[in-house]
Design a protein around this nucleic acid. Structure first.
Lengths: 152, 152
DNA sequence: AACATCACTTGCAATTCACAAGTAAAAATG
DNA sequence: CATTTTTACTTGTGAATTGCAAGTGATGTT
C-alpha cells in the first residue's frame, strides 16, 4: 500500500476515517472482538469474502497505525496472531454504536435482540466486560471464554 | 453510482459499513451535525475537499438510504437543503464515539478538550441535546442556535 | 440584458479493488 | 524421510471507483 497519506484536516471524525474508515478494517476488528479470530486464514474465511491482497494490506495498515500487533503463534510456527492493542480495544464503543444503529434500522439484521437489549440497558458495564474478555484472549460470541457464555 | 449492491452478510457491523462506510459519507453528516451545513455548496467547501461527482453520488446514496432528505431551500430557489432523518440523527452516537477515540489517540487532534470532556462526563444527556439542536435546524459548533453557545 | 451562483454531469487519467494464480516455509502424513 | 497440506503472503490482470478539469442549464443579482 502506498502511503502518501497527508492529513486532510485536523478534524477528529476525519482522523478516525483515515485510520480505519475503509470498508474492511472494522470487519477485521469485528472478527477479533465478536468472533475471536486471530490469524490471516481465519479473517480470510469471513463470510464477506475479502481478497487476499486487500486483507494483507489492511492488516499491515492497522499494525502500522498501532491498532494491531502481530506475533508468531506459539502453537503453530507458520501462523501469526493479530492482537488488539489498547488503541484497538478503544474502538469497541464505535463497533457497539454501529451495531446498535444497524439493529435499529436494518429490518433483516442478524444481531441477536437479547444482546442488543443488554448493550443498551447496561452500556458502560458491558463495554468494560467486552474489553476484558477480548484482552484475555476471549471474544463476545465464540469460544469457551466467550462473554455470552459467562452471562447465561 | 451503480448499485448491484447485494448484502455481503447479515452482520450489523457490515450493514453499517455498507450504508455509510465509505470515506466521505460520515464527513457529510459531520458537516450537518457539528457545523450546520445544509447545501451542496457548503459541503463542497469543506476543508477535506471532496470532488463534485463524489459529493453528488454520496448525497444521492444517503438520500436513497433514508438518512437524508432533500428539499428545496425557501430562501434561494436554486438551492436544495439536505436534512437528517430520524435514521440519520441516530448516527450521532457513532460520530461521538469516533470523535472520542480520535481525541484520545490523535496527538494533533483539533477536537476541543472541553467539549470531549463534556461528552464523556454526561454522554446520554449531551447526545440528546445534540439531537434536539440539529433537529431544530441548529448545530453543535456553528450558528446562533449552536449547542456550544447554549452551554456557556 | 449581463454576469455570477447554484447543483449538478461528463470525460478521462489515476488509483484501488477483486479475482486467479503463484511462492516459500512449516507442519502433518505415510 | 519424502510427499502432501497448510499458512501467510505476493504478483499479475481486468474491472470498478475516484480525482480532477471542464462543462451545463436553471436561478439570482445588478
Amino acid at each position: 500500500m502506498k502511503h502518501t497519506h497527508q492529513k486532510r484536516s485536523a478534524c477528529p471524525i476525519n482522523f478516525a476515517l483515515e485510520t480505519f474508515g475503509d470498508p474492511w478494517s472494522l470487519l477485521i476488528i469485528r472478527d477479533i472482538v465478536y468472533f475471536g479470530k486471530k490469524t490471516y486464514g481465519e479473517f480470510l474465511a469471513s463470510e464477506e469474502g475479502m481478497a487476499t491482497n486487500i486483507l494483507a494490506s489492511r492488516l499491515a495498515h492497522l499494525e502500522q497505525q498501532g491498532i494491531l500487533v502481530k506475533k508468531p503463534s506459539e502453537k503453530d510456527k507458520r501462523k501469526d496472531e493479530y492482537v488488539l492493542t489498547e488503541k484497538g480495544l478503544d474502538l469497541i464503543p464505535v463497533l457497539v454504536e454501529m451495531a446498535n444503529w444497524s439493529a435499529e434500522h436494518d429490518p433483516h439484521t442478524g444481531a441477536p435482540p437479547a444482546w442488543i437489549a443488554l448493550m443498551k440497558a447496561d452500556r458502560e458495564n458491558m463495554i468494560q466486560r467486552i474489553r476484558e474478555t477480548v484482552q484475555s484472549g476471549g471474544s463476545v460470541f465464540v469460544g469457551e471464554k466467550s462473554l455470552l457464555s459467562q452471562l447465561v
